[in-house]
Simulated assay, not measured.
Amino acid sequence: MTAQTEAAQAPDLLYSEAEEDLRSAVRSLLADRADAPTVIAAVESDTPYDLRLWESLAAGIGAAGLLVPEKLGGQGATHREAAVVLEELGRSVVPAPYLTSAVVATEILLALAEDGGPAAALLGELAEGRRTAVLALPFASAPADAAASTTGTLERTVTGVADAAAADVLLVPTAEGLYAVEANGAGVAVRPLVPLDLTRPLATVTLTGATGTLLAEAGPAAEAVGRGLLAGAGLLASEQLGLAEWCLTETVRYTRERHQFNRPVGSFQSLKHRMAQLWLEVVSARAAARNAADALAAGSPDVPLAVAVAQAYCSEVAVHAAEECVQLHGGIGMTWEHPAHLYLKRAKADSIAYGTAGRHREAVAGLVELPAP
Rank of each mutant, 00 (worst) to 15 (best):
residue 116 G to M: 10
residue 92 S to P: 03
residue 91 R to E: 12
residue 180 A to G: 10
residue 116 G to C: 11
residue 123 L to H: 09
residue 178 L to Q: 04
residue 117 G to Q: 11
residue 79 H to W: 00
residue 130 R to K: 14
residue 97 P to V: 11
residue 86 L to M: 15
residue 90 G to H: 04
residue 107 E to L: 00
residue 117 G to E: 09
residue 131 R to V: 13
residue 98 Y to H: 14
residue 79 H to L: 02
residue 87 E to G: 04
residue 169 V to K: 07
residue 176 E to Y: 11
residue 167 A to F: 11
residue 176 E to N: 12
residue 131 R to G: 08
residue 84 V to I: 15
residue 81 E to F: 01
residue 172 V to A: 11
residue 104 V to N: 04
residue 102 A to Y: 07
residue 125 E to S: 12
residue 82 A to Q: 10
residue 171 L to P: 02
residue 152 G to R: 13
residue 161 V to M: 05
residue 156 R to S: 04
residue 87 E to H: 10
residue 115 D to V: 05
residue 155 E to A: 15
residue 138 P to H: 03
residue 142 A to C: 08
residue 171 L to G: 08
residue 103 V to L: 05
residue 103 V to D: 04
residue 122 L to I: 12
residue 174 T to F: 08
residue 182 E to N: 10
residue 149 S to I: 01
residue 129 G to Q: 11
residue 147 A to N: 02
residue 170 L to E: 01
residue 109 L to A: 11
residue 169 V to N: 06
residue 145 D to V: 01
residue 99 L to S: 01
residue 167 A to N: 03
residue 141 S to P: 03
residue 136 A to I: 03
residue 146 A to F: 03
residue 158 V to Q: 00
residue 141 S to G: 04
residue 142 A to M: 02
residue 162 A to Q: 12
residue 167 A to D: 08
residue 140 A to M: 05
residue 143 P to N: 10
residue 155 E to Y: 13
residue 115 D to S: 13
residue 93 V to D: 00
residue 76 G to F: 07
residue 108 I to L: 14
residue 113 A to S: 15
residue 119 A to R: 05
residue 141 S to C: 11
residue 141 S to N: 09
residue 157 T to I: 06
residue 75 Q to N: 05
residue 166 A to W: 03
residue 147 A to W: 01
residue 134 V to D: 02
residue 144 A to W: 02
residue 178 L to A: 02
residue 88 E to D: 14
residue 101 S to R: 05
residue 89 L to A: 05
residue 128 E to Q: 12
residue 175 A to S: 15
residue 100 T to S: 14
residue 92 S to V: 02
residue 94 V to C: 15
residue 164 A to I: 13
residue 113 A to T: 13
residue 84 V to C: 02
residue 159 T to D: 14
residue 109 L to N: 08
residue 101 S to F: 09
residue 145 D to P: 00
residue 176 E to V: 13
residue 119 A to N: 06
residue 81 E to M: 04
residue 148 A to V: 06
residue 96 A to V: 15
residue 150 T to Y: 00
residue 153 T to C: 02
residue 132 T to Y: 06
residue 153 T to N: 02
residue 122 L to P: 01
residue 149 S to P: 01
residue 163 D to W: 04
residue 179 Y to F: 15
residue 98 Y to T: 09
residue 90 G to C: 11
residue 142 A to K: 00
residue 104 V to I: 15
residue 131 R to W: 12
residue 129 G to H: 12
residue 118 P to E: 11
residue 124 G to W: 07
residue 95 P to N: 12
residue 113 A to Q: 12
residue 109 L to F: 08
residue 91 R to L: 04
residue 79 H to E: 05
residue 154 L to P: 06
residue 105 A to M: 08
residue 180 A to I: 04
residue 128 E to N: 08
residue 100 T to K: 01
residue 88 E to C: 14
residue 123 L to P: 07
residue 125 E to V: 07
residue 109 L to K: 08
residue 81 E to P: 00
residue 143 P to V: 05
residue 111 A to E: 14
residue 169 V to F: 11
residue 130 R to C: 07
residue 136 A to L: 06
residue 156 R to F: 02
residue 166 A to E: 11
residue 172 V to T: 01
residue 133 A to H: 09
residue 150 T to A: 14
residue 154 L to Y: 12
residue 113 A to L: 11
residue 103 V to M: 05
residue 104 V to S: 01
residue 75 Q to T: 03
residue 158 V to E: 02
residue 99 L to K: 01
residue 102 A to N: 12
residue 121 A to E: 15
residue 143 P to M: 03
